[in-house]
Amino acid sequence: MGKFSQKFPFRVLRQRPIDNFIVDFYCAALLLVIEIDGESHFTEQGKLYDAERTGILQGYGLKVVRFTNVEVLQSFEGVCGELLGLIEGDF
């Protein structure tokens, strides 16, 4: 996570198994799941699966935030800012 990890004071794990899922990033201290979605997530089937998966993860008391690959690649600083804003506002 490079520059983001320098600004983010919490440990973030990549590819963390939770229940029957592997989430992209997980911060246990904040009960936060960060998902980075590629093209397969924008099909009807992908959207339904993501909604079900998000509901299950939220049932464990986790907050799930999603960004697209494009957002991360084209506006990494913006994504970092949004995450830091969420953390400051919600936690």
Rank of each mutant, 00 (worst) to 15 (best):
residue 4 F to I: 00
residue 57 L to S: 12
residue 25 F to W: 01
residue 60 Y to W: 01
residue 88 E to N: 10
residue 48 L to D: 04
residue 32 L to H: 02
residue 68 T to C: 02
residue 46 G to T: 10
residue 22 I to S: 13
residue 12 V to L: 09
residue 26 Y to C: 10
residue 30 L to A: 15
residue 6 Q to P: 11
residue 88 E to W: 08
residue 2 G to D: 00
residue 29 A to R: 00
residue 40 S to W: 15
residue 21 F to R: 15
residue 27 C to A: 14
residue 67 F to H: 05
residue 65 V to I: 10
residue 70 V to K: 15
residue 85 G to P: 13
residue 49 Y to G: 02
residue 77 E to C: 04
residue 59 G to N: 09
residue 42 F to G: 12
residue 6 Q to R: 08
residue 77 E to H: 05
residue 60 Y to T: 08
residue 32 L to G: 03
residue 2 G to W: 00
residue 11 R to A: 09
residue 20 N to M: 00
residue 4 F to Q: 06
residue 20 N to F: 02
residue 31 L to V: 07
residue 3 K to A: 06
residue 25 F to P: 06
residue 71 E to P: 14
residue 56 I to R: 06
residue 13 L to Y: 02
residue 20 N to W: 04
residue 48 L to A: 05
residue 64 V to P: 13
residue 85 G to T: 15
residue 45 Q to Y: 04
residue 29 A to I: 08
residue 38 G to R: 09
residue 28 A to L: 05
residue 86 L to I: 15
residue 75 S to R: 09
residue 58 Q to H: 09
residue 35 E to I: 06
residue 22 I to Y: 07
residue 83 L to K: 02
residue 3 K to W: 00
residue 35 E to P: 04
residue 57 L to C: 12
residue 24 D to R: 01
residue 8 F to D: 00
residue 86 L to R: 05
residue 3 K to E: 08
residue 7 K to Y: 05
residue 62 L to Q: 06
residue 26 Y to G: 11
residue 3 K to Q: 08
residue 39 E to M: 06
residue 21 F to M: 15
residue 18 I to N: 07
residue 84 L to K: 10
residue 51 A to L: 04
residue 42 F to W: 01
residue 60 Y to F: 03
residue 45 Q to T: 08
residue 69 N to M: 10
residue 60 Y to D: 13
residue 29 A to W: 00
residue 17 P to T: 13
residue 31 L to S: 12
residue 38 G to P: 15
residue 22 I to R: 13
residue 20 N to G: 12
residue 79 V to T: 05
residue 2 G to R: 00
residue 52 E to L: 00
residue 24 D to Q: 03
residue 36 I to G: 09
residue 32 L to W: 15
residue 79 V to F: 02
residue 10 F to C: 04
residue 9 P to I: 08
residue 48 L to M: 00
residue 5 S to C: 02
residue 61 G to I: 03
residue 14 R to W: 04
residue 28 A to H: 09
residue 55 G to S: 07
residue 49 Y to H: 03
residue 21 F to N: 15
residue 18 I to Y: 11
residue 69 N to W: 07
residue 71 E to C: 01
residue 56 I to Q: 07
residue 73 L to H: 15
residue 23 V to W: 14
residue 39 E to Y: 09
residue 69 N to A: 12
residue 19 D to I: 10
residue 52 E to V: 02
residue 59 G to P: 14
residue 68 T to M: 01
residue 43 T to D: 15
residue 30 L to R: 08
residue 73 L to W: 12
residue 51 A to K: 05
residue 26 Y to I: 07
residue 61 G to P: 04
residue 29 A to Y: 13
residue 21 F to C: 14
residue 21 F to G: 15
residue 74 Q to N: 13
residue 30 L to C: 12
residue 65 V to F: 10
residue 21 F to H: 14
residue 26 Y to K: 01
residue 27 C to L: 12
residue 6 Q to W: 01
